[in-house]
Amino acid sequence: MSSKDLEKRRVTGPDGEQFDVDPMQDYFCQERPKEHEPANRIWESFLNWARAESLWILGYGTGCGAIEMRPLMTPRFDAYRYGIQWRPTPRQSNVLVIGGYLSVKTLKRVIRSYEQMQGPKYVVALGSCTINGGMYWDSYNTINRLDKYLPVDIYITGCMPRPESLLAGFEALKKLIREGKGEGQNLYARNFDEYKANQKKIIRDWDMPDYNW
């Protein structure tokens, strides 16, 4: 989508009638994210158990790390055993796996995907490039620190991390969720302005609403 598509325009309908279209108002909702309070303790810990045991990963291979996601899901490592499954649409997934370096162009899509996911949602960042830029620390097109733009729950180091370490990383994520510490979504809502400012600093052609769920 280019920014041209989002400008206000006058359209002639099939029946010849003319009407105005403002895509920013019609197609998107411009509300800020809300913080969601956890339910009472015992009930919440049961729900957290269910959330931990059923991690639905968004099938978005953002970088090199995506290459190890296939062995992870196939016979040798088979993450399905641990309740880790794969969903094709952001609406239905809870875990966003960032597979390594993010170019600015991808970061924009990643933010949109992340905001469309329904909470509680978690971000798992693979590889050194998400931590400090890794191999591409001096590249003009890849970000250096993911946690400036999105709330990261777990980092998995390596270039690239092996499927074994991915499994270990997911186990660590499960532990966090069971302890009720997987509150990245609330963190995002709380520090929304700061995250947005960072995102807008590097995404120059910002042609979407601030929060597009």
Binding site: I131, W137, D138
Partner: peptide, 8 residues
């Protein structure tokens, strides 16, 4: 890169 992206 140093000016735009936050070096850790």
């Amino acid at each position: 890169s140093e000016e735009t992206y936050f070096p850790r």
